[in-house]
Computed example of a mutant assay.
Amino acid sequence: MGHGGNVLNELMTDHREVEELFGRIEAMPGAGQELRDLVDEVTIELVRHSVAEEQYLYPAVRKYVEGGDRLADKEIADHAEVEKLLKELEKTETDAPRMRPLLRQLMDDVSAHIRDEEDNLFPKLSRSCSPEALDELGDQVRRAKSMAPTRPHPSAPDTPPANKLLAPGAGLVDRARDFVTGRGKS
């Protein structure tokens, strides 16, 4: 992830990538390492995306959008639920009976979250922010994604300033673990 452009284009491109991964998961008939690799890839993308939104997008929504606190709080609550599902998926074997229902719940929840952001939050932010501010937010989000954790940390803080202080350290540890294990390289 890291596509360029303003924050809305950046995040919508992320959304399309996650939807493409969901399509690949749905088309996969079996379990095994190929499914684990796809679940890991979805997890990495969703965690990095969520951390960046929590660090920069939602504070901007609070600042620029009328009723932004309520909107940001709802989106952060959605992220918390998704992160719990990702943690469950991380420790569930791909051939376990609960794997497919957990994946279905994840795909449904994330798809609803994407629709809500793109139909509601993004247009409001676009109307209330200058193009320059949206471009700067895009740069901030890309930097945050490059340093973000790659594994779910449901108990980690999800609002500034604590999330901006702790996420890079967790990200460093996660990327080191990923390097050693080869996770996310397929």
Rank of each mutant, 00 (worst) to 15 (best):
A52E: 08
E54P: 06
E54M: 04
Q55T: 01
Y56C: 08
L57D: 10
V61Q: 09
V61F: 05
R62Q: 09
R62N: 05
R62P: 05
Y64S: 08
V65C: 04
E66R: 13
G67T: 04
G68N: 07
D69A: 13
D69M: 03
D69H: 06
R70K: 11
L71V: 05
A72W: 08
D73R: 15
K74T: 14
E75M: 14
A77P: 11
D78K: 10
E81V: 15
E81I: 13
E81A: 12
E81T: 11
L85H: 15
L85E: 14
K87Y: 03
E90Y: 05
T94H: 01
A96L: 07
P97V: 03
R98L: 03
L102R: 01
L102M: 11
M107P: 06
M107D: 03
D108Q: 05
I114M: 09
E118I: 04
D119W: 00
N120E: 15
N120R: 12
F122K: 05
P123I: 05
P123L: 01
K124F: 03
R127E: 12
E132F: 12
E132D: 01
L134G: 06
E136R: 14
L137K: 02
G138F: 07
D139K: 12
Q140Y: 11
R142A: 15
A144V: 01
S146A: 09
S146N: 11
M147K: 14
M147A: 11
T150F: 13
N163R: 02
L166A: 02
A167G: 02
A167S: 14
G169N: 13
G171H: 02
L172G: 07
V173F: 12
D174R: 07
D174G: 00
